[in-house]
Design a protein around this nucleic acid. Structure first.
Lengths: 338, 338
DNA sequence: GACGAAAATGTAAGCGCTTGCATTTTAGTC
DNA sequence: GACTAAAATGCAAGCGCTTACATTTTCGTC
């Protein structure tokens, strides 16, 4: 008894079209090598049988999968969700499929996830930021896996990256803050260990401080996990000191909005009594009151470009090309001159 | 010259461990069928060579891929991002990998995406809601693809689904609203065409209205795309009528928050002059002022359960089991008695 | 120590596809 | 029509793995 649920194979199509399997395969992959007559017959057979090539077989024989893997901290973070969505859309347009894995903010999981996605046949990989064990990069190079870093960009870095320069973007905002007369600048950072975006952003603030002749080391800084509440807690700690800052610069919008909430709860007026700034320009920034001053980052553009670049790398077998995207200040209502 | 970048194969491992390829394969798949001594040798060889099984070969020989596909409207929507994240985490824990595709809110793309993911070897599929072309369900059944619907649940429905009952959840909220004395209820719905979640939620409101002896047809309703601005526009249209509603029930939080913004812009006090309600309980609801009254839905739990259920379906080759999750009212500050 | 059953291992046949090479067909030229 | 180069097609060898079946080893019993 024939298995009614078995999928038609290349051979079935070949038989129906009265050609060899090679011709069918060519029809699928390099149609211009097939005569119009044969093309027609094969097309009809494919249509009639509802044939879809078997992915595994194809992967094995052709050694590529048209699949690209991405490893991000979490999709729940809007900035990753947005970029990843654009990445996926572009991938899809180009005939690639997205394999997703997340570290849930435990960077030590990344190495294993990379292996998993590679084992799953990913033709290329999208990773977040620069910071990871050299052994991981080593593995990637040894196995000749095309990869691309996103959400970050450093001049003359050793790895191909597409993103924005966290340090200089934040420095630009910090210079503006200083130009507004602020001298006592509090900082709420994300956890910097293993997170170069956070590290670079703090470094940007410190750079601007130093340029202005201020001592970076004397700027109070609190590290807080990525959550509204921890931003709120950090803020209240900063404000509770004997010499509270006149502005609190947060490494991202989520922490900044937490700070804003906290300010409201504590009855501290923003921006009259204290200014607050963020980074990322998530949708929320214009929904809170007062609207948050922050740095806009083109996440969707980045995701799309990343997809295009990665595919180009894979298909043209060429080395990666980094790309630096511009960020822009969004001066809204939470920053006032001192 | 040997290809230095070639991956070690099963055969290489077998040679290094001085056993047959079958033993290595068993070590990988059913280790208890291998003697401790052999197990040790193979483990050492795997370690030494840095062996990873080839996905395609495995897929071809074993006819499964340990890969599960999910098709969602967009990851940019927090409610999908959250559920999908949990889904992915659970999948990962169980040794499965997630393949993601999105329709970008064009349901007509779904059928093709389903085919793509199946062709990519997905062992099972996670889909959103019930509403789709019968031909799609037909295809799924013909090919015997395990699938699971999420973000929705209807009693005695023909398909396995894990989610909450949108209709009764919204009806519960609507009954509460009516109990607060509201009689003139405006509705801002998402686009209902092809979206059973939106359809059911509106139906829930209408049900409660009818129960209370009010005419559902006379309740003003505006459909608006999923975006803050369209919620805002819809709200201002509703309020501009000669007999503006005393409460505006929105089908989701995004529309509700848009409405809230609009109310503020128009100088209409919430909840004193008009009440507003949402649905989903996204993080934002407690960050806006006043805090939004809405319906909480356990997205993360749903995602995890969906992963478990789908894997069970696949591995135990059993029919799917639907599961209805409870939603809960979150009575906050945007709803006041009339 | 011999025996049989159970456990462990090995052998080898595919799984469905791509592709190098060989062969046939087609088209162009004299 | 004969001849040649180019285009189209076919043949068949893998790709790396799983697994049915055959064979060998181990172990408990008498």
């Amino acid at each position: 008894m024939p298995d009614t649920f078995a999928q038609p194979t290349l051979e079935d199509v070949a038989r129906a079209a009265e050609v060899s399997t090679a011709t069918v395969s060519r029809f699928l992959n390099t149609p211009d090598q097939v005569s119009p007559k044969a093309r027609e017959k094969v097309a009809a057979a494919v249509e009639k049988l509802g044939y879809t090539p078997h992915f595994g077989a194809r992967a094995m024989a052709a050694k590529r999968t048209q699949t690209i893997g991405a490893i991000i901290p979490t999709m729940e973070n809007a900035i990753f969700a947005r970029g990843l969505q654009a990445f996926q859309e572009t991938l899809n347009d180009k005939g690639y499929t997205l394999l997703v894995s997340s570290t849930a903010y435990r960077p030590e999981l990344e190495a294993e996830q990379i292996r998993t996605l590679i084992a799953r046949g990913a033709d290329g990989l999208l990773l977040i930021g620069y910071e990871r064990d050299p052994a991981v990069y080593n593995y990637l190079h040894t196995r000749r896996i095309p990869y691309l870093l996103a959400w970050a960009h450093r001049e003359n870095a050793a790895h191909t990256a597409i993103g924005f320069d966290n340090k200089s973007a934040m420095a630009t905002l910090a210079r503006h803050v200083i130009a507004q007369g602020h001298r006592n600048i509090g900082v709420i950072s994300g956890i910097r260990l293993g997170n170069d975006r956070a590290t670079d952003r703090v470094a940007g603030i410190h750079l601007a401080l130093a340029e202005a002749g201020l001592d970076p080391a004397s700027a109070p800084l609190i590290e807080a996990p990525y959550a509204f509440e921890s931003g709120a807690a950090a803020f209240s700690n900063l404000m509770r000191t004997s010499n509270p800052p006149s502005v609190v610069m947060c490494i991202n919008d989520v922490l900044a909005i937490g700070a804003l909430q906290s300010a409201r709860d504590l009855g501290i007026k923003v921006p009259q009594e204290v200014s607050i700034t963020g980074f990322d320009d998530i949708e929320l920034t214009t929904l809170v009151t007062p609207k948050l001053t922050t740095v806009h980052v083109p996440h969707r553009t980045m995701g799309s470009l990343a997809a295009e670049e990665l595919i180009a790398q894979i298909e043209e077998k060429r080395p990666g090309q980094s790309c630096r995207l511009d960020s822009a200040l969004r001066l809204r209502d939470t920053l006032a001159p001192r």
